[in-house]
């Protein structure tokens, strides 16, 4: 998959991560959004039974977007771990925030709701995984 040029245009820096290194740590602060330029990234959540993989993302996918688009400053909900060597681009958060704030209220509500639903679905998934043996 190729990276959309519009995405490239707001990449402010690139960063490489070796296999299994932590790109985003669950519970930490920060509102950067990354785009995966090369490689694969596993999204994981801490559970009573260890780390649970929620999904595997690949080139062109974003990581860390839910926190920015939820209209509140919240700790990172999941961890992002390199699955093999990974190259990510850090997006211009200030630009994204300005673009986001300029959107009509109802559209923002709608997208924030999507981000909230995603977190709730992940919570649900974790609960079910914890309850099963």
């Amino acid at each position: 998959m190729t990276i959309n040029p519009q995405v490239y245009s707001i990449v402010v820096s690139e960063e490489s991560f070796p296999d299994k290194s932590v790109i985003i740590k669950e519970g930490s602060g920060g509102d950067w959004i990354y785009v995966i330029l090369e490689g694969r990234v596993k999204i994981k959540k801490q559970t009573s039974k260890g780390m649970l993989t929620i999904e595997t993302l690949t080139e062109g996918d974003f990581i860390g977007e839910t926190e920015l688009l939820k209209q509140s400053n919240v700790p990172r909900f999941t961890s992002a771990i390199a699955d093999g060597p990974v190259l990510v681009g850090t997006l211009d958060t200030e630009q994204l925030k300005r673009d986001w704030e300029a959107q009509p209220l109802r559209l923002k509500k709608l997208i924030s709701s999507l981000m909230q639903n995603l977190e709730d679905a992940i919570k649900n998934f974790v609960d079910l995984a914890e309850a099963s043996k």
Partner: peptide, 8 residues
């Protein structure tokens, strides 16, 4: 909406 926000 800017493309990037739509992609996200």
């Amino acid at each position: 909406m800017p493309t990037i926000l739509r992609l996200i």
